[in-house]
Design a protein around this nucleic acid. Structure first.
Length: 839
RNA sequence: GCCCGGGUGGUGGAAUGGUAUACACGGCAGACUUAAAAUCUGCUGCCGAAAGGAUUGAGAGUUCGAGUCUCUCCCCGGGCACCA
């Protein structure tokens, strides 16, 4: 027996597998298709990140498990190679994105091949290749033809560093998702996708897909459905009305003033009647200068100006109320105007207090003891109870008298005929009584897909003086991205492509006259919104995806990726899939039936980052330990869906374990060959085998890889220590090797051939089955408790009668002593678990 | 502020309401070795000499029994946010 040399054996087997194309799938004829997808990486110049390896290993283990369960597992991988991330890197390095990307992709591919995954490299996808982005452009045209793509002038977010506009989803806390620069607002003519048309379906379908609750919640919050009403307020001595959106029509009687956003269109209309015109204009100018971040900073004190001479009329009680403008009201949400109810809204309350406006309580709060607002601090329990009650009483009075805000529900007061009714039951009726209408608002905005950048698919649109906006004909696709020397973003609201005369100049597909091309490229997230449809159909050059193949393989049965895409890629892909279904190209509307998010890998308790210098380079570890050990360690260091902490010391545990298994296998085989079958004592090992199969199988089903590995260790230790005959030990190690296949595919293959002597691949083996009846033990140790505290242990036969167990427990020496003659009040027996004697 | 995670030994982490600390790292002791590495064996959460006792962020509750369920609160990580 040679010593375990992972580097050597991994090289040997990978070569063989590659030669035999063991992982390639016959997409047309596969009988039992299973589409196992993982989020494809973008090929950064730094090379493969250990975080990629972590994500892909977990996904690959799932694929390998399903493969042994008899599925034809399709596990493709490709590269999200177009986009700002790749381009920014090229800019930094002073290379061209095309060369840079090609170099990085081949580097990535070589690194990925060392992982020992099931990747089907015959079906690789590269989003920056014309044969791919031709169909990304085709997708744009389909959306355009069906009225879901439109061009509009709108205030949009602009990243001054990336020199391009961004979609709403790509602005994180007022900053660019890619580079962290604060975005500014610009008014530009841009292309949008009408994702808002799908808001309701995006929301509804969430109930039917098997995704983590956290991701679903994130999408629900992002879509931000809010049900309320539009209510019109008349303006005294004026024809126009102010329409406001509110989710609390029940508080209408408490609306003591109106606030308009500074950009509200009525402000200009009312100008003639505003007495303090100068002050108002100055305020509007001031708020224009602030960026979104300054305006939405919650810590900031609220500002505003009253429109003197303008009064609105509250339709509920015909009271004249003042009208203000303030930048805490956003023009882009609802109607850009609100009815302020300071007694029942935190923001209005703060504003009213600052400017001395009327605060009128109209909802009687339901107060309960232990209310959140009272803190115990360093009071004793008694002091706190007393203080709490007084606090509560004070708080209640404060609310009724408008000294404190209350945003909850309750019974109405100060509301005319509605007094005494509950806020939840009057909402609809109050809307009706003032002639308002029910209205649903969404936070979700249309997807802005124009980018003033170079490294992306040109938007396939032509502008003709006569015919206007004309789509590029499908037969003329792709609109190839020209090779450009200076590809850097211009910062002029135009893409670098605008400077390429021979690209811009074209003929109108309708009238043949000279025309100009659109020079922006599309958002990188459009590339990745449909890539899963391409993988199974890469053979087809004349269509994005084949109908028959798509029917066979999609929707994706398992998708694994990071949670950072919760409201980005994962939502865009759902939208695109729904649209393609509506256009009749596919017959399902959710792309990923099941999605699981892996956790984040950290190093020594801290996030990995280049600046901290704590980035783990997978190559180093592949070189010194081999892929099997790295794979298994990654999966062992924590629960896959929660992430974990990489510590260099930890990897030795796995290295030792695999080495031990290697030795064990050859030992057991040689014992068996020498026919050392003398002791055929118990069926201990058989039970251990069934137990291990059960546990590992269950854990794999739930992606609980860390506990699966610890069971494998226990099982291996058990075999090692077993005194049973070699025949039984041999049977046990055969199961062990099979159970290890998903985690360490190379070593398993090596042992299957070299130690166990098989001529066929272990990867063709069936996943071992277990027999529930063989898992059970014959005897079991019971804990004997007195009043819930463990006092002794007894050994009983499984299934022993309750009375027998009781008797045995009471006769236990230790228990007898502890009871000291006391008569037990009650004895609780939980079968095979515990006896609790209550005295 | 709201919505998700999470808080268990020196460390990473296990525990269908039923013997908390599985599995591993690290540590200690021993064997082998001229020596070291590797390997193997044993011990190893805390206080205590022991008997025993306390213990899963804090406090209360439900229960024969709570890391697990309920309530209140604290802390850490992430997401959303003047969205009316």
């Amino acid at each position: 027996m040679e010593e375990y040399n992972p580097i050597k054996i991994e090289k040997k087997w990978r070569k063989k597998w590659e030669k035999e194309k063991l992982w390639n799938i016959d997409v047309e004829n596969a009988k039992n298709p299973y589409y196992n997808l993982m989020m494809f990486p973008y090929p950064s110049a730094e090379g493969l990140h250990i975080g990629n390896v972590y994500a892909f290993t977990g996904a690959d283990i799932h694929g390998r498990y399903m493969r042994m369960r008899g599925y034809d597992v399709f596990e493709p991988l490709g590269f999200d190679a177009f986009g700002i991330h790749s381009e920014n890197f090229a800019i930094k390095k002073g290379t061209h994105p095309k060369e840079e990307t090609e170099k990085n992709v081949s580097h990535f591919r070589e690194q990925l091949k060392r992982m020992g995954a099931l990747f089907d490299w015959d079906r690789e996808v590269d989003t920056s290749k014309p044969e791919y982005y031709k169909w990304t452009q085709w997708l744009f045209l389909q959306l355009y033809k069906h009225g879901l793509a439109y061009r509009a002038k709108a205030p949009v977010d602009w990243c001054p560093s990336c020199k391009t506009v961004l979609a709403d989803e790509q602005v994180i806390g007022g900053k660019c998702e890619r580079c962290g620069t604060e975005v500014i607002q610009k008014e530009l003519l841009q292309w949008f996708f009408k994702i808002t048309d799908y808001a309701e379906r995006l929301l509804d379908n969430l109930d039917e897909i098997d995704w983590p609750e956290a991701i679903k919640t994130a999408q629900r919050n992002w879509i931000g459905k809010s049900e309320g009403a539009l209510i019109k307020f008349k303006i005294s001595n004026f024809k126009s009305q102010i329409s406001v959106f509110t989710t609390r029509p029940d508080t209408l009687f408490g609306a003591t003033y109106i606030v308009l956003a500074p950009e509200h269109h009525l402000v200009a209309k009312l100008k003639g009647n505003i007495e303090n015109r100068g002050e108002v204009e100055k305020y509007i100018e001031g708020s224009k200068k602030k960026n979104e971040l300054e305006r939405t900073d919650l810590a900031k004190e609220k500002t505003g100006v009253e429109l003197k001479g303008i009064k609105a009329i509250n339709p509920a009680n015909n009271e004249e109320i003042p009208v203000w403008i303030a930048d805490y009201v956003s023009a882009s949400y609802g109607t850009g105007a609100i009815m302020a109810v300071p007694a029942h809204d935190d923001r209005d309350f703060e504003f009213a207090n600052k400017f001395g406006l009327v605060i009128r309580n109209v909802i009687k709060p339901q107060m309960i003891a232990g209310d959140k607002g009272i803190k115990q601090g360093n009071l004793t329990d008694e002091e706190f109870a007393d203080y709490g009650e007084r606090q509560l009483a004070n708080k209640y009075d404060d609310i009724l008298e408008g000294r404190r805000v209350y945003t909850g529900e309750g019974k109405l007061r100060n509301s005319g005929d509605w007094d005494g009714m509950h806020s939840l039951e009057v909402k609809g009726k109050i809307i009706e009584s003032v002639g308002g209408e029910k209205k649903i608002n969404y936070h979700l905005r249309d997807w802005l897909i124009s980018r003033q950048r170079y490294w992306g698919p040109p938007i396939p649109i032509i502008y003709c003086e006569k015919c206007g906006i004309v789509a590029v004909l499908e037969k003329d696709l792709p609109v190839e991205l020209p090779q450009v020397e200076d590809f850097r973003p211009t910062g002029t609201d135009k893409s670098p492509l605008a400077t390429v005369k021979e690209f811009v100049k074209t003929k109108c597909p309708e009238c043949g006259a000279e025309a100009k091309r659109e020079t922006d490229v599309s958002d990188n997230f459009l590339d990745s919104s449909w890539y899963f449809l391409r993988y199974p159909s890469t053979d087809f050059k004349d269509k994005p995806f084949d109908e028959k193949i798509t029917k066979k393989w999609l929707p994706v049965q398992m998708y694994i990726g990071g949670k950072e895409h919760a409201v980005l890629h994962l939502m865009y892909a759902r939208f695109v899939t729904m649209a393609l279904r509506d256009f009749g190209f596919i017959d399902f509307e959710e792309p990923f039936t099941k999605f699981r998010a892996h956790g984040l890998l950290i190093k020594d308790g801290a996030k990995m980052s280049k600046s901290k210098g704590n980035v783990v380079n997978p190559d180093e570890y592949f070189d010194s330990y081999g892929a099997d050990i790295v794979r298994m360690y990654l999966m062992f260091l924590g629960p896959y869906e929660q992430g974990g902490d990489w510590r260099d010391e930890g990897i030795s545990g796995i290295a030792r374990f695999l080495k031990r298994v290697h030795t064990l296998l050859f030992q057991v085989k040689s014992d068996n060959d020498k026919n050392r079958n003398e002791s055929l004592s118990e069926n201990d090992l058989e039970r251990a085998t069934h137990k291990a199969v059960k546990k590992v199988t269950g854990d794999l089903e739930n992606l609980q890889y860390n506990t699966a590995i610890s069971s494998l260790m226990e099982f291996a230790n058990k075999i090692q220590q077993s005194k049973e005959g070699a025949f039984y030990r041999l049977e046990a190690v055969k199961s062990l090797v099979k159970l290890m296949v998903p985690f360490c595919p190379h070593l398993s293959e090596e042992l299957w051939h070299e130690a166990l002597g098989y001529k066929t691949s272990v990867h063709g083996e069936k996943w071992p089955e277990y027999d529930e009846s063989k898992v059970a033990e014959n005897t079991v140790k019971l804990a004997v408790e007195i009043n819930g505290k463990v006092r002794s242990q007894i050994q009983v036969d499984v299934g022993m009668s309750e009375d027998a167990v009781k008797e045995m427990a009471l006769n236990d020496e230790k228990i007898k002593k502890m009871l000291n003659g006391n008569e037990p009040q009650k004895i609780i027996v939980v079968q095979n678990r515990v006896v609790n004697i209550v005295i």
